[in-house]
Structures are given as structure tokens and as C-alpha cells.
Design a protein around this nucleic acid. Structure first.
Length: 259
DNA sequence: TAACATGTTTGTCG
DNA sequence: ACGACAAACATGTT
């Protein structure tokens, strides 16, 4: 399910579900799920839960548990749901199950420091700080690729996915096909504000269900994603394909690049 | 039914 | 070196 905001929500939830608790078992129910096992975590305590990009990282006494939910992974307390791929059992609390119909999620049980080592090529974090326009220009401004592709490139900035990219560019009034190296200083500032505004707005919904709304029958919390009308100008939204993914935009608010 | 889906990796080609 | 593109993962939803 994840983009940055959802992984962040899961990280906070995991802190409540298993933070400070001792692991009584880690069961991999489906070995076809991509996984690594460098440690036996039995008896170790979950010291903290964090996020890096779209990766969830649990720090244990002498191990790190790194989880990537990919497109359809979810974490939920309990047992016995459909499509459970692995279960983390902890002392004096409900176990936490990873549910993932498509089996794209990953689980890595690593030695301390293993997560950071594996994530060395990952770009910097856009959340929770408000970075200035120059921060964005430094990271995205050197490539001729479309702005949306640059925003989603995890090696440049970590955590922004397909939905976030559309939403952010709409907020910033920037066209998704603009070459990233053609933005002006005020446009970089607008992008910076848009990222911060979007991420914080979503995190402050105080409603975890809204963060994992897709496939849950929930209400669409987004402004342009899978919508047909622009909330700002009321004009018809457009949809185009970039990198084989859907991009939603408002042609009136986000002027197309010349040529 | 066919197309599409929140992500990433790998390989090919220009 | 850079960037575009396709395929692969496996299955549910529209």
C-alpha cells in the first residue's frame, strides 16, 4: 500500500503494536516472498520502529527487521487473515501479520546496521522538514527527465510515489512533463511548499484508514488522483501516461511546457 | 473481458 | 553517462 505517508503511519502503528516487546516468534508462512535471514530474532526486544523512504525498519537488540510493503502489503494485528505472508509474534500483545495478495512485499532480518547499508543509494528524506527550494533544485535540478519521474526517483528523494507525485505537482501548479532542469527559482520554492503541504496534510488526517484507503472502499482523500474535476478551478482534469503509470493533472492550473 | 493497479529491479536499446 | 522503454513479480478491482 505504501507511499511515504502510509509507511510512516505503519511505523507509528508498529510502535504501538510491538514497541518495547519481546519477539516470541517470527513465522514466514510463504517462503516465496523475497526475504533475507541473517539473525534469529527470538527473544530480542523491539527497541524502536522507524521509516526510511518507503522502508519500515524495526531495530531489535542485535538485529534489524526491514520490511517493504511494495504495492499491496499491509500490516495488521491479529492472525489468520487471507494472504498472510509472515507473522511477528510478540509477548503480551497480539501478533502482527503482513498481508499481501500479490506477494511483492519483502522481509529482511539483518545484522545491526544492515538496513542502512542496504539503503545507501537511497535519496534524502522529504519529510517531515520543510526544505527550501534550493534543496529540491540541488537534488532534482540536474536532470532533463520529466519532473514527475525525478520526483519518484528514490535515489534522488526517498518516499514519493505515483500518487504523491501527481498531487504535489498539482499543488505546485507544475506540469508533470516539464524537464526537471528547466524550473525557475520560484518554481522550486512552489515545489518545496507543495511537498510539505501534501505530506503534512495527509499525515494530519488523524485517520489511519484514510491513509490506506485503496482497496478498503474508503473515500478518496486526494485532490486529483482518480478524480475528474479540479478542486481549484473546477475544470476537467486530464490523465496521461508517464513511465507506464497514470499521471493526473489539471491542464488549466498546470501549464504545459512549450515546444 | 480487458485494462489497470500505491513499487522496484533488471535488462535492452539509442 | 543519460534516458526511454519493456518485462517481471502475482492477483484483485473496475
Amino acid at each position: 500500500m505504501p507511499e511515504l505517508t502510509e509507511v510512516e503511519a505503519f511505523a507509528r502503528a508498529m510502535t504501538r503494536w510491538c514497541g518495547g516487546r519481546k519477539v516470541t516468534a517470527l513465522r514466514l508462512l510463504d517462503p516465496t516472498v523475497q526475504h533475507t535471514v541473517e539473525r534469529d530474532v527470538l527473544g530480542m526486544t523491539v527497541r524502536s520502529v522507524g521509516r526510511r523512504g518507503k522502508h519500515l525498519i524495526l531495530s531489535l537488540d542485535d538485529a534489524e527487521l526491514m520490511i517493504h510493503l511494495r504495492m499491496t502489503g499491509q500490516l495488521l494485528p491479529g492472525e489468520g487473515a487471507a494472504f498472510v505472508r509472515f507473522v511477528l509474534h510478540v509477548q503480551d500483545a497480539a501478533p502482527v501479520q503482513l498481508i499481501d495478495p500479490r506477494r511483492l512485499a519483502e522481509l529482511h532480518v539483518l545484522a545491526p546496521g544492515g538496513a542502512a547499508r542496504r539503503l545507501q543509494g537511497l535519496g534524502d528524506e522529504p519529510y517531515p522538514e520543510l526544505h527550501p527550494g534550493l534543496w529540491w533544485q540541488t537534488r532534482l535540478g540536474h536532470t532533463r527527465r520529466p519532473l514527475k519521474a525525478a520526483l519518484m526517483d528514490q535515489a534522488l528523494v526517498a518516499g514519493l510515489g505515483n500518487i504523491a507525485a501527481s498531487e504535489i505537482l498539482w499543488r505546485a501548479k507544475l506540469h508533470p512533463t516539464r524537464a526537471a532542469n528547466t524550473l525557475t527559482e520560484p518554481e522550486w520554492s512552489a515545489l518545496a511548499a507543495a511537498v510539505h503541504g501534501f505530506l503534512h496534510a495527509l499525515m494530519s488526517t488523524q485517520d489511519p484508514e484514510r491513509l490506506v484507503y485503496i482497496h478498503r472502499g474508503g473515500e478518496n482523500p486526494f485532490s486529483v488522483y482518480q478524480r475528474t474535476r479540479c478542486p481549484r478551478c473546477e475544470g476537467a482534469l486530464a490523465r496521461l501516461t508517464q513511465q507506464a503509470r497514470s499521471t493526473y493533472l489539471c491542464p488549466r492550473c498546470q501549464p504545459a511546457p512549450l515546444g
